[in-house]
Computed example of a mutant assay.
Amino acid sequence: MAWFKRESKGIITTTEEKKEAPDGIWNKCPNCKKPLHYSEQVENQYVCHYCGFHIRIGSKEYFSILFDNNQFTELFTDLTSGDPLHFTDTKKYTDRLTETKKKTGLKDAIRAGVGKMNGQDVVIACMDFNFIGGSMGSVVGEKIARSIDHSITNKIPFLMISKSGGARMMEAAFSLMQMAKTSAKLALLAQAKVPYISLLTDPTTGGVTASYAMLGDINIAEPGALIGFAGPRVIKETIKKDLPKGFQTAEFVQEHGFLDFIVDRREMKEKLASFLKMLAPVTEKEII
């Protein structure tokens, strides 16, 4: 079968002998479709250097970008979701939780940590979309509440990074209760005069948008992020009208007054550190 296989010495030609690049070394920009090498993505903070598209990332990547030298102490690592409603759809909720934990290495759709950002103490809670669509369940609400308590106790600014499809249907009312719970905790944070910055990333939707994501002292977003409550198809069918161009993008939301800033991820750390410095309380010594 020499027609289909070269036999010259030193030439590898059979499919079985070809060595493919390991998974994840190269992938494609979701926007411009150009190939991106993994090392280039990391160096450019997961922003396409061809078109500027912000690739979706999780808590691991955000922590490495924002915390100085990626040094932080993770908070409340023992929290995991229960199954109070014994929910079953195509499969049991407990089975889905087990599978998702194994697949992602996460315990739920949020991680929290405390460390320094440009030398300033900060508590960061970051959602992970890979864990059941970043859905807001009881663990998400509890971790946010405890993170806020940690900020109040230690007078440390709180940064919330939202990335979610909304409330977790498998927990029903227990999930919806987190909207009021986290909003009440943020009211206590405001009373304590501790700064709160909300960063909305792609996508931020549903009950998350309707609660803590929009309650920051400063609300900022990444370019092109999808931000909204209901999906565009549902809205279009409800109002019986075509939606405007760019509807529910960060740029559209900012234009209509719901965001303060849109910040490129590559400038995020410097901008956030600058905001925190401006929001920091002035001491008597500094006044003198």
Rank of each mutant, 00 (worst) to 15 (best):
I161C: 03
G105E: 02
T94I: 14
M170S: 14
V139M: 07
S211D: 10
M169I: 13
R146C: 07
A273F: 09
F131G: 01
Y93R: 13
A125H: 03
A250F: 04
F129W: 04
S135L: 08
P22K: 14
T201W: 02
N27M: 15
Y196G: 07
G257W: 01
G52W: 07
K240G: 06
T94R: 11
C48E: 05
I227M: 04
T153E: 08
I110N: 01
Y212M: 13
P244I: 09
D78P: 04
L276Y: 04
A250P: 03
L75G: 00
D78V: 04
K33L: 12
E74S: 02
H150W: 06
Y62E: 06
G257D: 05
L215G: 12
T14L: 13
D78Y: 07
K143H: 03
K241N: 10
T153D: 08
A167P: 12
A125G: 06
G228L: 05
F247S: 05
G224L: 04
I124G: 00
K5R: 13
T14G: 13
F76I: 00
R233L: 07
G216V: 05
H150V: 05
I124K: 01
K269D: 09
I55R: 11
V253H: 02
D149W: 06
K28T: 13
L66D: 00
G141M: 15
Q45T: 12
R6A: 01
T238A: 10
I124T: 01
E267Q: 14
T182D: 07
E20W: 15
L215Y: 13
K285F: 12
Y62G: 07
G82D: 08
D108G: 07
I55N: 11
V282Q: 14
N154R: 09
I227P: 00
V282N: 10
T77F: 06
F53T: 11
P30I: 00
A250S: 07
